[in-house]
């Protein structure tokens, strides 16, 4: 693999001081990322979604469950409800601004749960090999067999739908891929010389796993974590759409699900929340692709 060195970096020609300096991989990755237009677009869109979700209420008050106007008011016709109202006369903009919070919270926490389970099991399997690997991989395969959405639906219905149950359910069905990826990285890295060197100076297994191998396995895992957020957001949206989310919390999926029966009378109540979900996941995956290009120089141009 090509190492990021001064040769690959555009060093100022004729200046021996800068030509000698080796750019750190993190810095090079940042430089790559910051020149990647789609990735920056992703950052911009995600920032927009986050700002609207976090601070939107300060500028645009209103309870998303409250009936504020006549039902089916089309968008851009009434200043007080800019994007119109749904079948009950609830304000779409208020729904959009508050509906992102549960989706994003669940998305991020589910991704976190996925990464914690996946990395723990994957690193143990990859590092120790043998029966540990065998056992853990069998468990992983078992979870890959379960149709994720169906299993998550079962978990959520059996154990009352709260944001936590939903996040855990999504985490429980999504970790196998992360575990496999982590295992593959550990299998590759543990054979490298610096790991042998660490072992030779007497480093313990735990230290080798956490301090030596994991940081070097980080780039693909970071990319995978980003994409997992996107998947988790889609998952949460799907569950709320089916009416399996927390019924007391307005979310984008719930807005679509609630207005589904009236979609032929009014297109806007189902269209805008869907756009919001799309923009969020689109932004996250643009960032993921950008990180992938920046962190895996070998894969550039794919």
């Amino acid at each position: 693999m090509k190492q990021p060195t001064a040769e690959t970096a555009p060093a100022a020609a004729g200046d021996p001081a800068t030509a000698q300096r080796v750019e750190s991989p993190a810095r090079e990755a940042w430089r790559m990322f910051s020149r990647n237009v789609p990735a920056l677009l992703g950052v911009f869109l995600l920032a927009l979604v986050l700002l609207a979700t976090l601070y939107g209420k300060l500028f645009y008050g209103g309870d998303p469950f409250e009936i504020v106007w006549a039902p089916y008011e089309p968008p851009l016709t009434t200043p007080s409800v800019p994007l119109g109202t749904d079948y009950l006369g609830r304000d779409i903009v208020a729904g959009l601004l508050t509906g992102g919070a549960p989706t994003l919270t669940v998305g991020a926490s589910a991704a976190l749960i996925t990464m914690v389970i996946g990395i723990s099991l994957g690193s143990l399997a990859g590092y120790y090999g043998g029966w540990v690997d065998n056992l853990l991989m069998r468990i992983t395969e078992f979870f890959q067999v379960l149709p994720a959405l169906l299993f998550a639906m079962v978990l959520v219905t059996l154990f009352s739908p709260s944001l936590w149950t939903i996040a855990i359910a999504i985490g429980v069905v999504s970790w196998p891929q992360t575990a496999r990826l982590t295992r593959a990285e550990f299998l590759r890295i543990k054979e490298l010389e610096y790991v042998t060197a660490a072992r030779a100076i007497g480093a313990r297994n735990r230290r080798i796993i956490w301090k030596v191998i994991l940081p070097n396995a980080a780039p693909p895992l970071i990319v995978s974590a980003t994409l997992t957020i996107g998947v988790a957001v889609l998952f949460e949206a799907g569950l709320s759409f089916l009416g399996l989310g927390d019924p007391n919390v307005m979310s984008w999926g719930l807005m679509i699900g609630a207005n589904r029966d009236y979609m032929l009378d009014a297109w806007w109540p189902v269209t805008f929340p869907g756009l919001a979900i799309f923009v969020t996941v689109f932004a996250v995956s643009l960032i993921g692709d950008g990180l992938n290009d920046a962190l895996n120089p070998k894969l550039r141009g794919r």
Partner: peptide, 22 residues
């Protein structure tokens, strides 16, 4: 591919229904 990955499948269905119904 990026768009296809990001669109919620149930929403694609709903958009198509609206399009093909009216």
């Amino acid at each position: 591919a990026t768009i296809g990955y990001a669109v919620p499948v149930f929403w694609t269905g709903i958009m198509l229904i609206i399009l093909f119904a009216s």
